[in-house]
């Protein structure tokens, strides 16, 4: 397969996943911002949404400190000057898809193309809460359809594997960011850990990754920070956990290696990250510091991204 094709598929999947993550962040932020202050609601939520999305710096250049609901929504969802806005994610995904039409199934292409056409109906200026909710569920549905179309219709060959690797690298990055930002930015120093503020913020993390129900099924007790971290970092049952992402990455990279008859540094790196996750216990993670642990992970995950690129995509 052409390296450029593999590259396009890899990034196509990443951008579709990113759009989904942004929609979830906005969803949860809006929910939290509506809570009374005593339960964790504050305007601070919109600023934290920017941090979670990794766009705080860029936002500052455009809007300064004016992190109002309207500004943040329009920046994360529509702003052309934000390269990772939902609109840009869809635009880039479609441009990538057009260049690799031949490697996509008709169902995948139609999902992306019709989402792109549909996107034109939403404008940033005059969006009511209801319209925003509709928009966000449209984005999430698009990602689901794309993912489902890929899963159900693609040949199981390198095209499929590269797009899966892209999706899981992006997903791991998103999960790690969500965890990190919530833990360190949201909790004011004076707030008692385990208090109502803490409770709602940890719950919001679970909601943002559609894992609140799963949490109750898995732990059968009330929401506690270390359990949330355990679920999202180490629990292999949880499809967004770092462990689950790396099980998938390792598996698909191995499929590629078997197909091409050659293992390389990407496979080795993915395996060593997976091993490290497997050897971690959540108590130790908290003892050495959740932030440091996640930071290391994000760096490793990025390194995997560039290793995959060097080995296959250039």
């Amino acid at each position: 397969m052409l390296s450029r094709t593999a590259d396009n598929l890899y990034w196509l999947a990443r951008y579709m996943e990113r759009a989904d993550c942004l929609a979830r962040i906005l969803d949860v932020t809006q929910r939290l911002a509506q809570l009374p202050a005593a339960y964790g609601g504050s305007t601070n939520e919109w600023r934290s949404a920017l941090l979670t999305a990794g766009c705080a710096e860029l936002f500052k250049q455009v809007h300064g400190d004016d992190a109002t609901e309207q500004n943040v929504i329009s920046f994360l969802a529509f702003a052309p000057e934000n390269p990772s806005s939902i609109r840009n994610c869809f635009e880039i995904a479609r441009t990538n898809a057009r260049s690799v039409r031949t490697a996509l199934t008709i169902e995948m292409w139609e999902t992306i193309n019709s989402a792109w056409l549909e996107l034109k109906r939403y404008s940033t200026k005059s969006m009511t809460r209801e319209e925003l909710a509709r928009f966000l569920s449209f984005v999430k549905e698009t990602s689901l359809r794309f993912d489902g179309a890929a899963y159900r219709t693609m040949l199981r060959n390198d095209a499929f594997w590269f797009s899966r690797v892209g999706m899981y690298v992006e997903r791991a990055d998103n999960t790690a960011r969500i965890l990190d930002v919530k833990y360190h930015v949201l909790l004011p120093d004076s707030e008692h850990v385990g208090g109502p503020l803490d409770y709602f913020q940890w719950t919001s993390i679970l909601r943002s990754v559609s894992a609140l129900t799963s949490f109750h099924w898995v732990y059968r007790e009330s929401v506690k920070p270390w359990l949330v971290a355990d679920l999202l970092i180490l629990n292999a049952q949880m499809p967004r956990s770092l462990t689950s992402c790396y099980q998938n990455i390792t598996r698909y990279l191995d499929d590629i290696a078997a197909y091409y008859g050659r293992q390389g540094s990407a496979q080795r790196l993915a395996r060593s990250t997976l091993t490290r996750l497997g050897n971690s216990r959540i108590d130790d993670v908290f003892q050495t510091g959740l932030h440091e642990y996640i930071d290391d992970f994000v760096v490793e995950n990025n390194r995997l991204g560039s290793t995959v690129a060097e080995q296959y995509l250039l």
Partner: peptide, 18 residues
């Protein structure tokens, strides 16, 4: 596209994942 191809010793190759 052009950038997917290169010429070495008067032979044309394409850049692939393999």
């Amino acid at each position: 596209e052009g950038r997917d191809l290169f010429v070495r010793n008067d032979v044309v190759y394409m850049r692939t994942t393999e």
